[in-house]
C-alpha cells in the first residue's frame, strides 16, 4: 500500500485568497472520509494529492518521494481519483472505451487490463452495458462509469469526490460495497462526503476541513462524538447519533445496527 505524507501544504488559485493554509497529515490504510463545508478546501486538497494542482507551499510525499518529481503517468498508476461530476471525467463514447482508457494510458499489459476492466465493470454493475454511450445513461449510472474507469486502473490509492451524489438506495449500497472491497484488498480509500450517515457506516477515520485547515482528525467515533467541533464546522452528527443525544444517552452510537446490538 501507499504511504502518503502531507507536509505543510499551502495552495491558492489567486495570491490574495489562500485556499489551503498549512495542511499536515499522514494518510494510512483506514478508509478515510473528508468532511467540511463547501469551500473548505476539500476538493482542492484531493486535486493536490492527485497532482492535478501544484502546491504553492509544502509537499506531498508518496512513499517518501515528492510527487512533484513524479511523471503524470507514474502518479496515475498509483493514485486514482473519481471526480465529483462524471461529466468532467468521461469523454469516450462507449463504456468500455472509457473504462479501458486509463489502464491503457498507464501502460498496463493487455491481459491484466482485460481482467481489471472486467472486475471494475462487475463491481460497478455495468456488465452487459460495455457498448453503451455513457452520455445516454442517467447521472447515477454515468457516475458508476466514472468509478469503474478508475477502479480498472488498479491503483493502490483511490480518491472519491462525493461518490454518493444522485445515488439512490441501491446505488449507495453498491458504492458501500466497492469501498469496502477496496479496503479489503488493502488499498487506501479517501472520500469527500456530505452524507454523515454514510460516513458513519463505511469509514474508520474522519478528517474535518474548515477554512483551509484541518479542524479535527480522528476515528469516526471521536469525530462524531464532538458536537461542539461539528457545530463550529457547520456539520451535523449522523441521524442515529443525534437521536441518541436527544434521548440523553451517554454513549455515541453511529448507526441503527449498533444501537440495536446493545439490546
Amino acid at each position: 500500500m501507499a504511504r502518503i505524507e502531507i507536509e505543510d501544504l499551502y495552495f491558492s488559485y489567486r495570491p490574495e485568497e489562500e485556499i489551503l493554509k498549512g495542511v499536515r497529515l499522514t494518510l494510512d490504510q483506514r478508509p478515510t472520509a473528508i468532511i467540511g463545508q463547501n469551500g473548505a478546501g476539500k476538493t482542492t486538497f484531493v486535486k493536490l494529492l492527485k497532482g492535478l494542482l501544484r502546491p504553492t507551499g509544502g509537499r506531498i510525499l508518496l512513499d517518501g518521494q515528492d510527487i512533484a518529481g513524479l511523471s503524470a503517468a507514474k502518479l496515475a498508476s498509483r493514485i486514482g481519483m473519481v471526480f465529483q461530476n462524471p461529466n468532467d471525467q468521461i469523454f469516450k463514447n462507449t463504456v468500455m472505451a472509457e473504462v479501458s482508457f486509463g489502464p491503457r494510458q498507464i501502460g498496463m499489459p493487455e491481459d491484466k487490463m482485460r481482467i481489471c476492466c472486467q472486475k471494475a465493470l462487475e463491481a460497478a454493475r455495468l456488465t452487459g452495458l460495455e457498448e453503451k454511450n455513457p452520455y445516454d445513461m442517467g447521472l447515477s449510472a454515468r457516475k458508476m462509469v466514472a468509478i469503474a474507469s478508475i477502479l480498472a486502473m488498479d491503483t493502490d490509492t483511490v480518491i472519491f469526490d462525493e461518490p454518493t451524489i444522485a445515488q439512490d438506495h441501491v446505488g449507495k449500497e453498491r458504492i458501500r460495497q466497492i469501498i469496502r472491497g477496496l479496503a479489503g484488498e488493502g488499498k487506501s480509500v479517501i472520500a469527500i462526503l456530505h452524507d454523515m450517515d454514510f460516513v458513519a457506516d463505511v469509514f474508520e477515520r474522519v478528517i474535518v476541513f474548515m477554512e483551509g485547515r484541518i479542524l479535527m482528525d480522528g476515528s469516526v467515533r471521536e469525530v462524531f462524538a464532538d458536537r461542539d467541533m461539528l457545530e463550529r464546522a457547520y456539520l451535523e452528527q449522523p441521524n442515529v447519533t443525534r437521536l441518541c443525544h436527544e434521548l440523553g444517552y451517554r454513549g455515541v452510537y453511529l448507526k441503527v445496527e449498533e444501537l440495536l446490538h446493545e439490546t
Binding site: G36, Q37, N38, Q84, E162, I165, A166, H194, M196, Y234, L235, E236
Partner: peptide, 12 residues
C-alpha cells in the same frame, strides 16, 4: 429535482 444533492449540510 434533487436540488440539494450537491450541497453540504449547511447549504442543504
Amino acid at each position: 429535482d434533487e436540488p440539494v444533492s450537491q450541497l453540504d449540510p449547511q447549504g442543504r
